[in-house]
Design a protein around this nucleic acid. Structure first.
Length: 672
DNA sequence: ATAGGGTTAG
């Protein structure tokens, strides 16, 4: 080692002896070697600029093209492609490499238009693009989905005969794929004289992005049949094709994952995301834990991917542990990660946690605000949600369609009828957003819950699109609450045509009949269900305890502590009766909600989960329950009393929202 | 050199 290659040493030298730079004569001579070594180490901008001015004083170095190239690369690495361009301007006798480096400087810094401008200028210098230029400019077209320039580049490629080059071909496949020209992409791929795993992955990505699941999987199978080993990139490319997909596709990806021999963090992240995107949160969490156990260090993406699964499962303890990991590894600030943290706290009913993350953020986007707004909304704090919405507007952010879904649903859960109407107007008139089905569903829900059933029905009638089952479902729920038989029958009629297999709506209608005392109709509905083989979804409740999520079914007797749980429940019910509790055991009214009728004598799952938690946790520990259906009226009353008797805060998340039970009352004020 | 992994509602 003959020269100093430590940029820190250079920068210290220069900063403590600035007089060295005063006159060129005094400058200690530096060699090309020395310069090159420092530049290749990617110094920070300050060091870079000092070195740059030194180079300018040295005539020998200034005219050296290889130093110029290194300078350009170093500036690009510091996110300063404009300065790379200035260096480029000074280089005399530019060759293709100098152009390539400048183009890459721009592309690596997402200045795609500038990259393409430089590419276009090459002809006026009489310099031909080469097999390094094309992949780079094709990438610029890919990212910006610039099909027009992309095809022009394709012609240029053919003209100079570089279409047989592997890297150029890969760039073309990716460009066409990104632009949605799958036929073109496929044609290029098929005609390539040689292909590698990147060629195939690009094709997979193209199909996957366009939602062509079967084609994407077909390419995977084809590459396997040609003995091209899929890698983590193959899985990553496939990802958009495996959201809300058939179980078979999930298992296919799982098999791919098992077959990979490299343990890259990307493949684990993709597998976690696949589970999350297919409503398999328990598997996602399990895989995350296995990843930790195997010593594969989760990165920000692993965490942003697994946190929604924790939220789904209400796995607050795990969520908190992951949050600590984020702090320990200093993964913050990271907007997406922090947004995911807000959401996991929100979904676990832990408003304070959500708020703390939000307050601690350096910058926030619409997603951050929306997450917090919906957190307040789900927890019945509509007024706070409304206040937050105004603050978001004040901060200069423009609410999007999702933000409006959140605020409308917050209003509907809190019974804020006027506010809800105001936000609907705001969305359509001020922001000129076109409402989607979700917004209509929120409005029907808002009006219906507030007792404006006729207006809700009229609202549906004037919709510019076909209402879906959620919309009729919201109307039917309102009809049950407000005993509106006429409109209820209309809603039910639509529902039975739209989703004849959904048990919940039959139950809702039978509840309306029961309330009106029309028992023959109740019986008729039950026999229709039986005849059509419609099974109700069994009620399930989850509770996290001792780093595990425990699941209880309605009437569950499979738990080892089952006997103890039922005994304790009996004791509780006795105390509740002393306080005036009358169990709703009337066979028709009992399952006011969607709980399985077969289990009407069985204990609902949330009661079992709550008693399990009371038995196993320290007195005073809050109890958090998640269930897959809505809480029924009987359980709602019972849990209020249990919260008083057992002196526990009980937080129940059902399909729509949270109920915070404490000291005999619920945060929803019995409005849900 | 070329591909490829993340957050918000319902």
């Amino acid at each position: 080692m003959k020269s100093v290659a430590n940029p820190f040493r250079l920068s210290r030298h220069l900063s403590t002896s600035p007089q060295l730079l005063k006159t060129p004569q005094e400058v200690v001579a530096i060699t090309e070697d020395f310069c090159g070594q420092i530049l290749d180490k990617h110094p920070d901008v300050r060091t870079l600029k000092r070195l740059h001015s030194k180079i300018i004083f040295e005539r020998r170095l200034r005219s050296n093209p290889s130093i110029g190239i290194k300078l350009m690369r170093a500036y690009a690495a510091c996110g300063q492609p404009r300065i790379s361009h200035h260096v480029f301007d000074e280089v005399t006798g530019k060759n293709v490499v100098v152009f390539n480096v400048l183009i890459r400087s721009y592309v690596n810094n997402q200045f795609y238009q500038d990259a393409l401008l430089v590419y276009r200028s090459m002809s006026s210098y009489n310099i031909n693009p080469d097999h390094y230029t094309f992949p780079c400019v094709l990438k610029a077209c890919s990212v910006t989905e610039n099909w027009w320039v992309g095809t022009q580049i394709h012609s240029a490629v053919i003209k100079v005969g570089l279409d047989s080059n592997l890297f150029v071909g890969n760039g073309l496949v990716a460009m066409y794929g990104k632009c949605g020209c799958l036929v073109e992409a496929r044609k290029v791929l098929d005609e390539m004289p040689q292909r590698d795993v990147v060629s195939w992955n690009s094709m997979v990505a193209g199909y996957a992005r366009s939602g062509r699941f079967d084609d994407a999987l077909g390419v995977c199978r084809k590459m396997e049949s040609l003995s091209v080993k899929p890698n983590a990139g193959t899985m990553a490319s496939l990802l958009p094709a495996v959201t809300n997909t058939a179980a078979d596709n999930v298992w296919y990806v799982k098999e791919l994952f098992m077959k990979l021999d490299n343990d890259s963090v990307v493949s684990w992240n993709v597998m976690i995301a696949v589970y999350v995107n297919n409503s398999l949160p328990a598997l996602a969490v399990e895989l995350y834990l296995e990843m930790e156990a195997r010593g594969i260090e989760p990165d920000a993406i692993s965490i942003a991917s697994v946190l929604p699964a924790c939220g789904d499962l209400s796995a607050l303890v795990l969520g908190r542990r992951i949050h600590e990991y984020v702090e320990r590894k200093r993964l913050r600030p990271n907007l997406l990660l922090e947004n995911a943290l807000i959401d996991v706290y929100a979904k676990c009913g832990c408003l304070r946690g959500a708020r703390e993350v939000f307050d601690g953020m350096q910058c926030r986007d619409v997603v951050s605000w929306t997450s917090l707004i919906s957190a307040y909304g789900m927890n019945g704090q509509g007024r706070n949600a409304v206040a937050l919405f105004s603050k978001m507007q004040d901060s200069g952010l423009t609410p999007d369609l999702i933000a409006f879904v959140s605020i409308l649903s917050a209003c509907s859960h809190a019974g804020l009828l006027d506010e809800g109407r105001y936000f609907y107007k705001l969305m359509t008139q001020k922001y000129r957003l076109v409402p989607r089905l979700e917004h209509f569903a929120c409005m029907v829900d808002l009006l219906g819950r507030a007792g404006q059933v006729d207006e809700a029905y009229n609202f549906i009638k004037q919709m510019p699109m076909e209402p879906n089952d959620r919309i009729w479902g919201a109307l039917l729920s309102a009809c049950r609450v407000y005993s509106n038989m006429d409109i209820g029958l209309i809603a039910a009629d639509h529902l039975f045509q739209l989703v004849p297999e959904q048990a919940g709506y039959y139950v809702l209608l039978s509840n309306i009949y029961a309330k009106a005392g029309r028992w023959e109709d109740v019986t008729t509905i039950r026999s229709i269900m039986k005849g059509r083989g419609i099974k109700k979804m069994p009620g399930v409740s989850n509770v996290e305890f001792n780093h595990r999520v425990y699941t209880f079914l309605a009437g569950d007797q499979s738990h080892p502590q089952s006997k103890e749980i039922y005994e304790e429940l009996d004791v509780l019910v006795g105390k509740m009766k002393e306080m005036g509790y009358v169990p709703e055991t009337d066979s028709a009214l009992h399952d006011v909600e969607e709980e399985d009728k077969e289990n009407h004598l069985a204990v609902h799952s949330e009661k079992l989960a709550i008693v399990f938690a009371i038995i196993n946790t320290e007195p005073g520990t809050p109890i958090r329950i998640t269930k897959n259906l809505r809480v029924c009226g009987d359980c709602h009353i019972a849990i209020k009393l249990i919260s008083k008797i057992a002196e526990r805060e009980i937080i129940v998340r059902d399909t729509n929202r949270f109920h915070h039970f404490q000291n005999g009352v619920c945060s929803c004020d019995d409005y849900w």
